Simulated assay, not measured.
Amino acid sequence: MSGKTGAYAWKADFTSEYQNKMIRSSETGIDPFLGFVLKGKVNRHFSLGVQATRYFISLNDVTYYSAVIEYNFTQ
């Protein structure tokens, strides 16, 4: 098992139309994230696992799950 943590910078541009007028908005921010990876070796070249990462976005938190397939080229 391993963990990760950090921060990321983001920018979002919004455009919408209301009563024939274009409305534009832009937001930026820096938000933290953390996660973990759990993986095990299948053989000397392949590892399989799962990963979960939580992004603490000020507008809406996001949790991301994924599968990990890793190949090691070394002998």
Rank of each mutant, 00 (worst) to 15 (best):
F46L: 11
V62A: 08
G29H: 12
Y64F: 05
T5N: 06
G40P: 00
M22I: 15
M22E: 12
S2W: 05
R44C: 02
V62E: 09
E17A: 05
K21F: 04
T74W: 08
A67M: 04
A12W: 13
K4E: 08
D61Y: 03
S2C: 04
A52Q: 07
E70A: 08
L59N: 15
F46H: 04
N60E: 12
I57D: 10
S16Q: 13
V37Y: 00
G29R: 12
H45G: 06
Y8K: 06
T74I: 07
F14Y: 15
D13C: 05
N20S: 13
T5C: 06
K21I: 02
S16N: 11
Q19H: 06
K41L: 02
R44K: 15
S66V: 01
V42L: 13
H45T: 05
N60A: 14
V37S: 02
D31F: 05
Y8T: 02
A67I: 03
S2Y: 07
T28H: 15
L48V: 00
R54H: 15
Y64S: 13
N60Y: 09
N20W: 06
A52Y: 04
V62L: 09
T28N: 14
S2T: 06
S66D: 05
Y18G: 06
T28Y: 12
F14P: 01
V37F: 00
W10Y: 15
S26W: 11
Y8E: 09
Y64C: 02
F36W: 08
D31E: 12
D31T: 05
T53C: 02
Q19L: 08
G35N: 05
A7Q: 13
I69W: 09
G29V: 05
K11S: 15
F73H: 12
G49L: 01
H45Y: 13
K11I: 06
L59F: 14
A9E: 13
T53V: 05
H45R: 14
F73S: 09
D31A: 11
A12G: 13
A7G: 14
Q19F: 06
G35M: 04
T53G: 01
L59C: 12
S58G: 10
Y18H: 13
K39I: 00
N43Q: 10
M22L: 13
R24F: 04
T53I: 01
T63V: 14
F46E: 03
Y64K: 11
V42D: 08
M1V: 08
G3I: 04
V42K: 10
F36N: 01
G6L: 07
A52H: 03
E27A: 15
L48E: 00
D61N: 14
S16L: 07
F56M: 10
T74N: 14
R54I: 04
A52P: 01
K4S: 03
E17S: 09
W10P: 02
G49N: 01
F56L: 09
Y8S: 09
K39Y: 00
N43L: 09
R54L: 08
N60G: 10
Y64W: 06
M1P: 03
I57Y: 13
T74S: 15
I30L: 12
S26P: 04
S16F: 11
A52F: 04
F56V: 02
V68F: 00
A7S: 13
Y18Q: 14
A12D: 14
Q75N: 14
V42H: 10
A9I: 07
A52E: 05
Q51N: 07
S58N: 13
L48T: 00
G6I: 03
R24D: 11
V42Q: 14
N43K: 11
Q75H: 14
T15Q: 15
Y55R: 04
E17Y: 04
F33W: 09
T28S: 15
